[in-house]
């Protein structure tokens, strides 16, 4: 946004409101996010084997290709270098199960960029997080493949259940230690909490993401999860399990904080984060699916315009 209203431009361009000023330009921020994703990429390769690199490469290259083709057809400037489409590709790959079919990954990447982003007009206009749109499409298109999880192993693939489905269907709880390090079943990038936290610290320190949404999500997950845990500790997992299992942390840091699809104002960010956590906990404990981070973020993405409308701060002196 700061680019479009810079004074160095010969032509004076007026950007649409809101004129939020940030320390980083869009391009710089996007590359910082890519750097923050590196620990998660490394952890996915460590736990699920080097062959997972193929999924990431296929996802990124199809995302970039889709963007290039659509921008060429619509005769718009090609904007690969701003990095947003590369992020979409990496994010999509990291929320897919290990050893996922490469053809389906490519379909998911095309849908994520084509339907999730370009249909709305490109970066800045999309209502829903593109990577999650791609994941949701794949979930609906290939429901069997996308829930086939392989155990982290260096030799051969053994199919296993994720900690969340163990919790849901067998009432067994995985140890928090392996959830923290990432040595457990799950999507590529979401199993290792420690890798995500390294990326999170980097993003918070550089000021690319705001602390409010992740903090609101984590605090409210602890509170909502804690209430159910106190009611029945044998049947419901403890709140820490909710934080570390599944895609919660990954979603809180990399998905829910997306600049385009999250609320603009502080109050709205708190509401957004709390609502996401509430939906996640409800889906996990009472819904039909073991995991609900994807659907809850997509659902709340749809509410963002409404949240923005009602949390807009009043200008000093403005009459109510």
């Amino acid at each position: 946004m700061s680019e479009t209203i810079s004074a160095t431009n010969a032509k004076l361009e007026i950007a649409r409101s809101p004129h939020v000023h940030s320390h980083w330009s869009t391009k710089q921020a996007m590359w910082l996010v890519i750097i923050a994703l590196i620990p998660s990429v490394i952890s996915s390769l460590l736990f699920f084997g080097i062959s997972q690199l193929l999924i990431i490469l296929v996802s990124v290259s199809f995302a970039v290709a889709t963007e290039t083709i659509i921008k060429t057809i619509r005769k718009q400037p090609i904007s690969i270098s701003d990095g947003s489409v590369i992020i979409t590709g990496i994010l999509l790959a990291l929320i897919l199960p290990p050893n996922f079919s490469l053809v389906s990954t490519a379909i998911g990447a095309v849908v994520a960029v084509g339907i999730g982003k370009e249909v709305f007009g490109g970066l800045g206009f999309n209502i829903f997080n593109p990577a999650l749109v791609g994941r949701a499409f794949l979930q609906a298109a290939f429901p069997v493949n996308i829930t086939t999880w392989t155990k982290p192993s260096f030799t051969d693939a053994v199919s296993s259940a994720t900690p969340l489905s163990l919790m849901k269907f067998d009432n067994k709880f995985e140890s928090l230690n392996s959830l923290f390090i990432g040595n457990t079943g799950g999507s590529l990038g979401e199993t290792s909490a420690i890798a995500i936290l390294i990326g999170a610290i980097f993003l918070l320190a550089t000021g690319v993401i705001n602390y409010r949404v992740p903090l609101a999500m984590i605090l409210s997950a602890v509170i909502f999860g804690g209430i159910f845990w106190l009611i029945n500790p044998l049947h419901f997992p403890n709140p820490l399990f909710h934080l570390l299992a599944g895609g919660f942390l990954f979603g809180a840091i990399f998905m829910a904080t997306d600049w385009v699809t999250s609320p603009l104002y502080s109050r709205g960010m708190w509401i957004y984060g709390i609502a996401i956590s509430l939906v996640v906990i409800l889906i996990r404990l009472f819904g039909g699916l073991p995991e609900g981070v994807m659907y809850s973020i997509l659902l709340l993405n749809g509410f963002v315009p409404l949240i923005n409308k009602y949390t807009k701060p009043h200008i000093f002196g403005e009459e109510k």
Binding site: S101, V103, S104, I107, I115, F137, A140, A141, F142, P143, N145
Partner: peptide
Amino acid sequence: EPWLIMILPAGAFL
């Protein structure tokens, strides 16, 4: 591999 989503209502809208 058949895209199951296409015979679901979401596929019609898409």
